[in-house]
């Protein structure tokens, strides 16, 4: 339940910014794919280059895990992270 407790604090900080600075856009970030593993570095770095990578093309990189359940987890990350 820790994430829920700390999450409330984070949400409050963001909401405070939205309320007090409605004209100042903000960015929320967590880890993301670029900090995952050297095996992904090359591909991940290409994401910021227009036209190079489509969603889902990173999935084959996760084959070394060999478990469908884990690959499913990465699908979620790619979409939601």
């Amino acid at each position: 339940m820790e994430i829920m407790e700390k999450g409330v604090d984070t949400v409050n900080k963001v909401l405070t910014h939205i309320r007090d600075h409605p004209d100042e856009p903000c960015l929320i970030h967590c880890t993301g794919l670029n900090a995952v593993d050297p095996l992904l570095q090359d591909q991940a770095s290409d994401i910021s280059q227009p036209g190079k990578i489509e969603r889902g093309r990173l999935l084959p990189s996760f084959k070394w895990y060999g478990r469908p359940g884990l690959i499913l987890g990465f699908k979620v990350l790619i979409i939601a992270h």
Binding site: I18, P22, P25, C26, L27, I28, H29, C30, T31, G32, L33, N34, A35, H81
Partner: peptide
């Protein structure tokens, strides 16, 4: 206004 990203 609100952007979301991986680690930058």
């Amino acid at each position: 206004y609100l952007y979301r990203a991986g680690e930058p």
